[in-house]
Each structure stands twice: as structure tokens, then as C-alpha cells.
Nucleic acid binder design. Sequence first.
DNA 1: AGGGTTACCC
Length: 559
Amino acid sequence: MCSQHLRRILVPLSNPAHSARLVDQVLTQAITNGLSHATPTWNCILRAYSNSPTPIKAILIFNHFFIKKSSNIPDNYTYPVLFKACSCSLSLLPMGKGLHAHVTKTALDSDIYVGNSLIHFYGRMALFTDARVLFDKMPFRDVGSWNTLMSIYNDFSDSGEVLILFKQLIFEGIVADKITLVILFSACARLEKLHYGKTVHCYATKVGLEYMLNMENALLLMYAKCKEMDEALRLFDEMGSRRNIVSLNILINGYIDMELVDLAREVFDEIVDKDIVLWRSMMHGCVKAKQPEEALELFKKMIDEGVTPDEEVMVSVLSACSSLSNLQYGRLVHRFILQNNITQDAFVKTALIDMYSKCGSLEEALVTFYKTDCKDVVTWTTMIEGLANYGLGNEALRVFYQMERKGIKPNEATFVSVLAACRHSGLITEGCQLFRRMGGVYRVQPTIEHFVCLVDLLSRAGLLYQAEEFIKIMPAEDKFISYKALLSACITYSEFDLGKKVANNMMKLGNQSHEAYVLLSNFYALEGHWTEVAEARRNMKELQTRKKPGNSIIDLKHY
DNA sequence: AGGGTTACCC
């Protein structure tokens, strides 16, 4: 096959896997017959590989046919393709940097395409300052340069930066294109900046840019994420036959976000050709809406329809098993994962550990945990939480210290689990120590959950006055719920004076004071102080607040 | 001989 012919068929080929297969054949021919290509033809081959499922091949071929055989000289068309291939894996950072040096030496970095692909490459490597410096130093920039930088910030760093860049773009007199607007709407969706997005929408309508599917989808997403479903639906109708499966998915996720699963399901059921993303969304929606049975039913349906589940679907299925506490199902799902060669990434592993501990098999949870190589903070936290729920406080702490030794930084949730472990097992010294470590060493800002844990730990141990002192230093908005925990403890330990003081403090806090009266009257009742019970009830009536029946029982059980 | 960078849903 001659070079010209090869190029003519490679260029329009849209299926990356197909073109890569074709290129494989051409390459074998080239190697066996010693056929040499001109740089444009090589560029074509490299491009086919960089778009294929195995972009690394582009790099390998470049190393073999350009670096080793220096008869081929890369040009300004070669480098963008290579940088794109290098963007696919973090391990290719040194390779990309080497190519960058080469580009600078040969002065090809003034080429806009080369520059843009370099920005993209550094952005994908999470080296945002490098990307930014390159952008600022470019002798010539086009809309593409701006789009590249903006999309990098949007996808991997800070969406707020996109809005700042857009302002700058307008200021410099650059004309935004459709892609700029897609990125901008997507940033507005993430930031939930409805007003800003609407203004840009008007601008887009004025310049007549609005009819482009991706842009309409980005807009749709923006309205859905901002919970403006009326506006989203209006746009959806307006799109008419232009809408696609992505538009439907946005709508479904919008309903799910607003806790309208039934509406989401209605849209879902109408769709004939469902792709994996739709199944993923719908199953996640069921799990989120506490409908685990429906999630499992959907899973069966999905398999029946011949759709291959992915890792994210399996996470939803496992979490459905967890909330049903159905160990049999859970084990079946585990077996399914093994039999269908589904990658057990950190997410799947964590879901398995969570499932086993919530379904009552701590042994299997532990086995899965210790068999996991890729443990992240969430994996460790899930295991700690599991142990804590089994009342194995000391074991939970041991796992926590093990995690620290491995150099994994605990987060907010980790401390909730580990403090809960202390609380369940009455580990007072450890709990207080960990609480100090949280702020002092790890700079994790304590939240209401941490406070409640600690107050509860102290109160249950009968250290009620320490708990009260502790609440005094808490932020005002967290005090009420902590006082509630303390008051319950006062009831348990018959600490009449402190209880009265706590109840008074609660009432001073304002709006939720009816709850304070309910607890207070229960408190007096237990103490047999019936006059005070009557007084508390009277005060409650004066507040014109009525408690819902049974509420106080739940409150007491809970704390 | 004559080719490219940047975009939507999880």
C-alpha cells in the first residue's frame, strides 16, 4: 500500500479501534518490507494510534522510527499528536517533558497547535502553573488556546478560574466560539452560577450561537444543576428532535437530584436504547432514594438486556445490598464481579468492604480489606467504621494507627468513624486525644458530628461537667444538638442541677426551643418533679409549638 | 503529497 493511499483512507476513518487495526497491518508491512514513509504519513499513523484505545503505541512507534532512525524528522504536525498520546497516562510525564525540550530547541513551540497541545498536556498532568506559564508566554494565541486552558481548569482544577479567563478573553477582544460557551456553561453548572449562566445564554442567543447540541446539553445541565427544572424542561422541549441520550440523562439526573425519582424513572422507562450511563444514573438514583429493591431489579433487567455493567454500576448494586442487609445477595454480587472480570478498583473494593460489614459478615469485610492493595482514605475509613459498628473500638483504633503509619492522611469522615468507635467502646482518653490530633496535626475542622461524638462520649462516661465545658467552646450553631446529647446523659445519670442548667441554655438558643421543653419535661418527669413538668408543658404551649407524637422517644434513643 | 489542538452525560 502506498503512502498516499494510506493517508487517504486513514484520515476520514472515524472508528479509532478500526483505524488502529488497519495501521497495525500497514506497520507490519513496513517492518517486513523495509518500507519507509515520509513524515506526513508517519504523522497519520501516529494520529491513528493516539486516538486508539492504546495511545502508548504512538509513543513506541515514535521512539522506534524517529528517535532510533534519525532519517525521519518530526515536524509541527507530529508533536501535537505525541503530546496528546502523552496526556493519557501520568507515567508519560518525563516523555512529554523530553518532547517539550525538543520542541523548544527546534523553535516549533511558536506553532499554535503545538502550543495548545502542550497546554493540554501539562493540564492533564495536573501541572496547572506550567500550563498557565506556557499560555501566558505564547507569542500567538487563538480561541483554541483559551478553550484548552479553560477546559483544563474546569475539568481538573477550579471552575471559578474559567469565569475569570472568560472575562479576560472578552477584554482582549477575542471572539468566543461554540466550544468556549460549552465550557463556560459547564463551569456555571458546576459552580451553580445560574445568574451568570443566564446572562451568557442571552448573549449566545443574540449572536445566534445557540443551536448546537453540545451547547444545548451544557445549558440543560446548568439549569438542572441549579435546580431550575422548569427552565430545563422548557429548553428540553425547544430542543425537539435535536436532543439525544445525553440530554435525557441530564434530565434524569436533575430529577434524581431533586429527589423526584419517580419522574426520573418515567423518563428512563420511555427510552428504548439505553446506554450504560443511563443505567448507571438510574441505579444510583434508586440507591440514593433508599429504594434498594428497585436498584437490584434494574440490575437484573440490565443484564437481561445484554448491557455489560461497569465498576460504577457494581458500586450501586453493592450499596443496595448493604442497605437491604442481604448477605446472600451481596455474596452473589461479589461472585458476579469475579466471574465477569470487573476491575476491583478502590471504589468497588470499598463498596465490598462496606457491604460485608453492613450485612453482618465482619470476617469477609476484613478479608477483603486485607486483600486490597489500592487502599485510599475511603477504604480505610470504611473498615474503621465497620469495626466501630461491631463495637470493636480498640480494633478500629488499631486500624486507624496502621493507616497513619502508612502515611495516609485521615479526613473528616475518618475522624467521625474513629470518634464513633471511641464512643461505642467508651475509650475516653483516646477519644479526647484523637479530637486534639484532628485539629492540631491534621488541620481538619471539627464539624457537628465530631462534637456530638465527643460530648456523647464524655456524657456517657459520666463526665458531664467536662462535656458542658466543652460545649461552651463550640460554635453557636452546633451547640443545640450537643446540649441535647448532654441533657439525655443528665437524665441517665440523674444530674438534676446540671440538666436544668443545660435545658435553660438550650432555650436561650432560640428557634428550636420546643425540643428543649420536650426533653426538659421528660427530664422532670423522670425525676418526679411534676410541677416542673407542668410548667415546661405550659411554656411549650406558649411558644405555640407542638411536638410530633413519639419524637422525644426517638430523640432519647438516638442520643 | 499535505495532515492538527480545544467540547456534552458519571
